[in-house]
Every structure is written in C-alpha cells, then in structure tokens.
Design a protein around this nucleic acid. Structure first.
Length: 887
DNA sequence: CATGGTATATCG
DNA sequence: CGATATAC
C-alpha cells in the first residue's frame, strides 16, 4: 500500500524515531496469565503432541539455558528440565492468537498516549516518532521545567560509548567547535538523548499499565531504530548517535538490516562482494540501481549513509485480517470434503475476527483473498485469488473461497472422481482486506456529538487529562525542524474519521480511563490515524443516512445471530445430515475423527446468518449479489463420495502446526557487532538494570538504587532516594526544597517548610522497596511536606541528617551551597545537566506554547528557529567527567 | 514431512 | 491483480 511516505533529505537526521519491541512477548503474556510461572524459564509452544510442541517464544531465563526457538518442547526440557511450556490456545484445530493480539493492542494503546505518530509494525512492535515531544521537552529544559538527570536515563545505552555519561559528556562539551555539519549532528543527537528520557517513561508506562517489559531503539530513522533496539535486549533501550554509525557499520553484516535479511541481502553481498554495511558506501547510487531495483538502489545508497527517509505513519490497525494453515507432508489436503472443512474453519475465524473488527473499528473489508499452495508434480505451486467480500458470513466466505479455487485451478479434481483433488493442497489461507470505513452516519443530533468530539481534539490519543490541545488544527508552532520533517511530511492524513455514536462513546470511554502521562500531550496536527484514511470521502459513497440507522440495527442483528449460532451449534448436529454423512465418511478414512466435528454445526449456523443478513441488507456492496452460495458447498460435499481412497488418511491436520509469532531471537549474533551487551547473570525480575555498574560487591550491605543503579549502603538508602526525589523536582521545587530544608536544619525543627509547590509535573518519589522492578516514573507521588518530614525524622531511625551540617555537608565549589555529602555526586550531576541545558539553549529558539485553539495560523516561526546559529559557548563549568559517573 | 501463522510491501 | 519476498 502506498501508505509509505518519505521525508525530505534535508531532514534526514531531524527526527527522533523509536522502535519499541516487546521482549519475548508471548512468554510475557503467558506469565501474566499464569503468575505462578513468573521468573521461571519459559517457552511458549504450540500444542502438538509431537515432541512436545513447537517452540515459538523463549524467555530470557530459558535462553540462558540454551533453549531456542526451532526446538521442540521435549528438546527444551533436556536443556532445561524446569522449563515451563505454556501452549498457544487452539481453536478449530489451529492456533488462536487472540490472546496475544489483545495484549499487543493493550501495549499499543499505552504507546499511543505518547504520540499519535504510532505505527504498529507487528503484534509486538511499534515505531514512534517522538520528535515533537522531544522538542517540547527541550523547551521545558530550557525553561528549567525539566532536568535531564541520570535517573531519567537508567537502562539507556549508547552505541559507540561506554556509557551514557560519556555520551552526555560529549554532547555537553561545547569547546570544540566543528564544522556546521558536526554541529548539526550534535543537535540531532541531543534530541536522541532527550528522546531517551521520554522513551524511558514510555517503557515505564508500558510496564506499569500492562505489566510487560520491552526494549527500544532510539535513532533518527526507522531502520536504524529497529536495528538499535536489538543491541541491548531485555528491558533496555539503546541510542544510536549519528557519529557512531560508521563504526557500527564496519562490523554490521548487511543481513542485519531490515529488508536485507533475505535473498536480496544475499544478492547484494554476492554481487557487490561485500559483507558489511560499511562496504556499501563505496558504490554509486546508479550502480546500485542498475543491479537492483531503482528504488532499492536509492534506498541502499542512502542506507549506506545511515539515512532512511521513510516516515513513521500513524497506523494502529491491520490493513488485513486473515488466517492460514499449512498442511505439510502427509497432511496435505487431498479430498474435497477436507478442503471444504478447512475452508470453513478458516472462514469461521476470519469472520469472527472481522465481526470484532467491525465492532471496534467501524469498518468493513471488501476484498477476500484466498491463497493456497498445491503440490503439482513434486513442485509447490502457490496461488492467490481475490474476490469481493460481500458479507461477513462464514458460509459465504467459505463457499466463495472454494469457488475461487475451483475456478482457478485447472483440473481441480482427479479425472473420474468427484472427491479427490487432482493436486494436494499443502497450504490454505483466507485474508480479508480493502477496508472501508462505515463512517459518516451523519445524523442530525449526532453531528453535534462529532463536533464536540473533534473540537475537543483530545480525541483518543490525547490523554484523559484535558491537557491535550484543543482544536485539531495544527502544530504547536513547534520547532520548525519538524515542519519539514517527520510528521510534517506525513502530510497524508487529514480527515478525521467519522465514527458512529457507538464509536464515539467508546472513544470517550477510552479517553476516560486512558492512562496517559502527566505531561502535555502533543497536539500534532494530524490527529487520527489513517486507518480510516483510505476512506477518502470520495471513495465511499455514503450509504447515506438511512444506513446510519441501519448501522446499529446491524449490530443487534449480529449479536442476535451470534447467539443463534451458538445455540445452533448445540443442536446443529441434525441439521446437516448430508454433510454429516460425508464428514463421517471422511472420518472413516481418517485417523483423526475429532477434528471434523464442527462442520455440521457450522453449516446450519451459516445458513441462518446468511439469510438474515440478506434480509436486512446488512452488507451492501456494489458488486453483484451472488445469490448463489450455499448450494455449492452442499453440492460438492454431496459429490464427495466417501471413497475412502479419497482421503488417503490425510485429514488430520490440526494437531501439528505450531503457530507463530516469534520474536526474533536476538540473543546471538545480533549484538555482536558493536554494542555488545553481554552481562546478564540472573534474570530475576529486572534483568537489565545494573549493567553499568561493575558487579563489585562492597563489603557492607548495599542495596541497588532503582533510580541510578548505584549500590547504596543500606542505611543510606532512604536518604539516597530522597535526593533522587529532590533531583526530579523542577527547578522551582528544588529551590523551595532547598530552602525548606535549610530552614529546617537551621531551626532544627520540623517546621512545615516548603509546602505548596504544586507543580504540574508530579514528582514521584521512588518507592522504597529496592526490589521493585525498574518502573521509573511511577505514580506514587509524595508531597513535598511529607518528603521533608520524612527526611527529617520518623521512619527509618538512623538518618544521617542528625549530625551537624559540617560533618555531613560540604560546600559545592560551583554554586557554593552546602550539599549533603551523600548527594554530592547527584548535585554535580545537576550542574552538568544544567550545562547540557545551556548547550541545548543554544539550539533552540524559545518556542511558544501553542495556545491558539482555533487559530490554525501556522506558527510562522521561520525555519531559522532550530537552524539558529549556535552561539559560542560561554560558561565553562567544571568538567563533566563526573556526570552520570554512576551509570 | 514438520516451526508456522500473520501481515505487508513491491514488482511486473 | 497476483506472485514473491521479508520479517515477526
């Protein structure tokens, strides 16, 4: 589909693109479902009596034991006897991924709170363009409203650097002035750094709201973000600065780049005689274009330079819904009844999912694609046929699909047989696509609703908090950088999808419970996804008002039918005698009877729904109403003679296949190239965290600080946490805090000092339990008063503050303030952070808060804004060597 | 035999 | 539109 949009070359490094990748997602889903297995080695398998099932996902503890995908359950047990092997649910003889799809959606919904520019790439991966958020944050930093301190970057790695500290140091070092190019890179990379703090929040939110952990890659484009996400895997995030690309490429096999992992990549390596990405840079674009495709050539040419212009486009829902199944080896389908059976099974699943989709997304698929692969003379021949999808009816779908296959297959049946297929089918698939929005439904009163709906602007994406921008108009007048760049480029979307009332309500609900974040949501002009976009107003000739009415009835009917079908199934057995017979016959020839059961039931059910929908004219379509249907099936079935020979015992499909998903195993080679990441001893709860800190165990009892990863003497933990808390406060709060603390210390009492200070940004105090997973930015806010009093006394008895100031504090050489010894390093971090901000300050012109509701006036902010010439460095603060030293 | 089910993009 | 490729 043409949903691909490119940004302009000018903005090649202007964006902050993030790829969020759920860690061994299926395993996490199973863990959440069955908490008892949490923490244990786990491998999700598809039910298959054969060898313990096929493994489709392996969690990290299991990987540590050598378990991998590609193994069968039995094999896994040999490597790891204690392994848990939850199974993918099976429905209708095939794997049912619903559970994971739902989980994936749950995650995506959280992600969506952070930017409307969310592009779901798979069930467990999504790209986010957080450029705008980053710019907003940079502005906040410049205004002193946000401090980028170490605890904001926990678990963040940087390709090409030993640790973030080094990276920060480099960025905040303003001495060396280089070419304008370098300066541009620096500005761009600062965005990545700031982006990382946001990504940390995003990941924390995902963890908090869903319980799932993920990893992320932060780069200037999708390909690199994706690549980078794999460098530090479980529960971590990695930044890829521009300057690190060349070195990275030197050891990066071409195959590692998304899109070059297959045949094309192999060809590229063969033809060009290269192995690593760095070697690709030498070839002129024209050469690449002539050896490969023009487009590919250009893409590779740019990729060789770390450039990928593909924009992140808003996409939340799949463009197609389908299911398929393989019938390998002996399970190949050789009889018509068997074929019919499986078509029904597949059609049932598709219809089910389509109905649900209709419910949730108010859209209707118009095209059905049947795909299958037959073995012809020892050769596998696959074909696909697309036919109009006129109704969400199992029977219709199944029969139409069968007809399509027949129609398209020459010599469908063996000569002289009415039941034996001429060529065995080894793969069958049904997929529905070409969705059209059912939108509109402009009814009188409804319209108002919509108006308020869109006027609110806060739509679904915007968090619950009314913070969202109103007016869906445009830009926050943000930095122009964007203008030219990402979202801007995605000029595509525009129209707000209209949804019916039900939808409206759903959205409202969602918004209400949405979890989003504290901070201001980015407005971002394009509001909605373009899921619905394809529905350009033109395309669809509205079914007009009357339909608006029908829409709802439709639902009712649907539900009714569902009920009916359910009921029908129960008593359906008799209905389909004919079918049954045949089925039975097949079964007879079949080793596995149970599988076929549903057939009769479906039939009857189908008929019902078919009739109903027609009557109510539920689904309208321009195409001809093929009023035929049903018969065909019966017909074929009938013909299907029981000749046992027909089935050759093939029908037995379902038990074997494993299904799906798969997260790539990033374990191995993946990270080999640059940023290695090996350290991962015990996977308990939070693997990650402490990679930065050499596992040097102090003699004294220490506790790992969840904020900075440092090992803190047990008795100092509380105090240490308090300082993190303080550091997380805004400048203003910080001042108040300091003053309050001072006066308290001076007064030696518990004077209710600094109170008030209700900052818009709820500073959170880290939970005191050191064992807690790394959920930063949790929401357990603590009032400053309480914080202070706590510091002062109560709680933990032996708090350091009880001694005289001189013993526990020391004067900061930079600001002259007395700082608690325990907080010295943090305090210095603060100064460094400040320096970084100063550096940042030079990069951005003060942006305006976009107040204008209506004023769609594009902020005129001349493109000079970010391009602003960087001012010469001024303040020289002390070396930042200590910055993030802990990390 | 046999990872295997999904989803999407692109070329002709 | 269908075949093919890619990747999770």
């Amino acid at each position: 589909m043409s949903t691909k949009t490119n940004i302009s070359l000018k903005n090649k490094f202007d964006r902050v693109v993030v790829l969020v990748d759920m860690d061994c997602f299926y395993c996490q889903v199973e863990e959440k479902l069955t908490p008892e297995i949490k923490g244990k080695p786990i491998a999700v398998v598809q039910y298959n009596p054969w060898q313990g099932g096929g493994i489709i996902a392996v969690n990290y503890p299991a990987r540590a034991k050598g378990v991998t995908r590609h193994m069968r359950g039995d094999e896994a047990k040999q490597h790891c006897p204690e392994i848990e092997l939850p199974q993918v649910p099976q429905v209708r003889g095939k794997a049912d991924l619903t559970r994971y799809r739902e989980a994936g959606k749950e995650v995506a919904e959280v992600l969506k709170c952070f930017t409307p520019l969310l592009e779901r790439a798979s069930i467990d991966e999504a790209y986010l363009d957080i450029t705008e958020r980053v710019l907003v944050r940079i502005r906040e930093m410049n205004e002193g409203k946000f401090q980028l301190l170490p605890d904001k970057l926990v678990n963040t790695f940087v390709v090409g650097y030993e640790n973030i500290g080094e990276f920060v140091k480099k960025l905040s070092n303003n001495s060396d002035d280089q070419s304008s190019d370098k300066l541009e890179y620096k500005k761009s990379d600062i965005k990545l750094l700031v982006g990382a703090s946001i990504v940390n929040e995003i990941r924390a939110a995902v963890k908090e709201k869903t319980g799932y952990e993920c990893s992320a890659g932060i780069a200037h484009n999708k390909i690199l973000a994706k690549l980078t996400a794999g460098f530090h895997k479980p529960n971590k995030q990695t930044i890829l600065p521009i300057d690190s690309i060349p070195k990275l490429y030197e050891t990066l096999p071409v195959k590692k780049v998304k899109g070059l992992g297959g045949k094309l990549g192999e060809q590229v390596c063969e033809v060009l005689k290269i192995k690593f990405m760095s070697e690709l840079e030498q070839f002129p674009e024209s050469l690449l274009q002539q050896h490969f495709e023009e487009r590919m050539g250009s893409w590779m040419y740019l990729m060789a330079r770390g450039i990928d212009l593909e924009a992140v486009t808003a996409k939340f829902h799949s463009k197609s819904i389908g299911c398929c199944k393989r019938f390998p080896g002996k399970n190949a389908i050789t009889g018509l009844a068997t074929l019919t059976h499986w078509l029904s099974e597949l059609a049932t699943e598709v219809a089910e999912r389509l109905e649900k989709d209709l419910d949730e997304n108010n859209r209707t698929a118009k095209l059905l694609t049947v795909s299958y692969c037959q073995q012809i003379d020892d050769v596998d021949v696959s074909s696909t046929r697309s036919i109009p999808l006129v109704a969400y009816e199992i029977e219709r779908i199944a029969t139409d699909a069968l007809e399509a296959i027949k129609r398209n297959t020459d010599r469908f049946l063996k000569t002289n047989s009415t039941t034996v297929l001429n060529n065995a089918i080894k793969f069958l698939g049904l997929s529905a696509g070409k969705f059209e929005s059912n939108g509109a439904t402009k009814g009188g009163g409804i319209k108002e609703m919509f108006q308020s709906y869109s006027a609110k602007g806060a739509t679904a994406e915007e968090g619950p908090s009314g913070m969202g921008r109103r007016k869906s108009s445009t830009e926050p007048a943000m930095l122009e950088v964007l203008d030219a760049a990402p979202s801007a480029t995605g000029t595509s979307e525009k129209i707000k999808p209209k949804k019916d009332i039900k939808h409206f309500l759903q959205q409202q609900c969602k918004g209400a419970i949405a979890v989003c974040e504290d901070e201001p949501k980015l407005p971002h002009s394009e509001g909605e996804t373009q899921d619905t976009k394809p529905v350009s107003s033109a395309t669809k000739v509205q079914y007009s008002d009357p339909l608006a009415e029908t829409v709802k009835p439709k639902k009712d009917i649907k539900h009714f039918l569902q009920q009916q079908s359910t009921a029908a199934k129960k008593s359906a057995s008799e209905d389909s005698q004919q079918l049954k017979t045949e089925t039975v016959e097949e079964k007879a020839a079949n080793p596995d009877p149970d599988q076929m059961k549903p057939e009769g039931g479906y039939k009857s059910v189908l008929h019902q729904s078919t009739a109903k929908s027609k009557d109510h004219n539920i689904i309208e379509l321009k195409s001809i109403h093929n009023v035929v249907e049903t018969n065909s099936t019966n017909h074929s079935k009938r013909e299907e003679t029981p000749t046992s020979a027909t089935y050759n015992g093939n029908i037995e499909p379902d038990k074997n296949q494993p299904v799906t998903e798969t997260k790539r195993d990033e374990t191995l080679e993946n990270s080999s190239s640059t940023a290695e990441a090996k350290p991962q001893p015990n996977y308990k709860e939070t693997y990650a965290e402490f990679n930065f800190i050499p596992p040097v165990e102090p003699a004294i009892v220490t506790v790992d600080c969840q904020q900075c990863g440092s090992k803190i003497p047990e008795n100092e933990y509380i105090s240490h946490q308090d300082f993190h808390f303080a550091l997380s406060l805004s400048q203003q709060q910080r001042d108040e805090f300091r003053n309050g603390l001072k006066s308290k210390l001076a007064a030696g009492t518990n004077a209710a000092a600094a109170k008030g200070t209700k900052s818009p940004i709820p500073a959170k105090r880290p939970s005191k339990t050191p064992s807690g997973p790394a959920t930063h930015s949790s929401s357990s806010g603590v009032s400053i008063e309480r914080f202070l009093s706590k510091t002062r006394s109560i709680d933990e008895g032996p708090i350091i503050a009880s001694t005289s100031e001189t013993e526990t504090h020391s004067r900061c050489p930079e600001c002259g303030k007395m700082i608690a010894l325990l907080a010295i390093s943090e305090h210095q971090d603060y100064h460094v952070a400040k320096r970084l901000q100063q550096e940042l300050h030079r990069l951005e012109a003060p942006a305006q808060p976009q107040t204008g509701d209506t004023a769609s006036t594009k902020r005129k902010r001349p493109s000079t804004a970010v391009e602003e010439i960087m001012l010469p460095a001024k303040q020289k603060v002390k070396p930042v060597s200590s910055y993030f030293s802990k990390l």
